Amino acid sequence: MLRACAEAGIAFLPWRPVAPATAGGSEIAAVATELGATPAQVALAWLLDRSPVILPIPGTGRIAHLEENVGAAGLRLTPAQRQRLDALG
């Protein structure tokens, strides 16, 4: 799907982009601890790292939540962390 979107020059908007983080995945929590981030930030960072056509739009109800979401853009996953997260899906 992502390849087709990239070839067509269209964005892919994932549904519920932080859902994996809220499902309580221990691997996501472990990566979050390694990065000093929240699981939701790791889920967003992983999506942003997967493809330039992915445009996650997480819901935001509070300023603190918005700041948390924006903070995900600054996270850099290591290749090993990315591989661990890729294996979840």
Rank of each mutant, 00 (worst) to 15 (best):
A64P: 05
E68T: 02
T33P: 10
A72P: 00
E68V: 02
T22K: 14
L35E: 08
F12V: 09
T78S: 14
T78P: 03
A43R: 05
T33K: 15
P14H: 01
F12R: 10
I54C: 01
G89Q: 09
E67K: 06
A73Q: 09
L35D: 07
E27L: 12
L55D: 13
Q81A: 07
V31E: 06
G25H: 07
P39G: 09
E27C: 13
E27V: 13
A23K: 15
S51L: 04
R50D: 08
A73N: 07
A87S: 15
P56L: 01
D49A: 13
D86K: 08
P52V: 09
L85F: 01
T33Q: 13
G9V: 07
A73L: 13
S51C: 06
A40F: 01
L75E: 06
A8R: 04
I54F: 05
A87M: 11
I57R: 03
V70M: 12
P79I: 11
M1N: 05
L35Q: 10
L75D: 07
P56W: 00
L35T: 09
P56H: 04
V42H: 13
A8S: 04
L77K: 14
L47C: 03
L35W: 08
A30W: 02
P58H: 06
P58D: 06
T78E: 06
L47W: 06
R3G: 15
A40C: 02
G36H: 06
G59C: 11
P58N: 08
W46S: 07
A37T: 08
G71Y: 02
L35M: 05
D86C: 10
A4Y: 06
R82S: 13
P52F: 07
G61T: 15
R84M: 03
T22W: 15
R82A: 14
R84P: 03
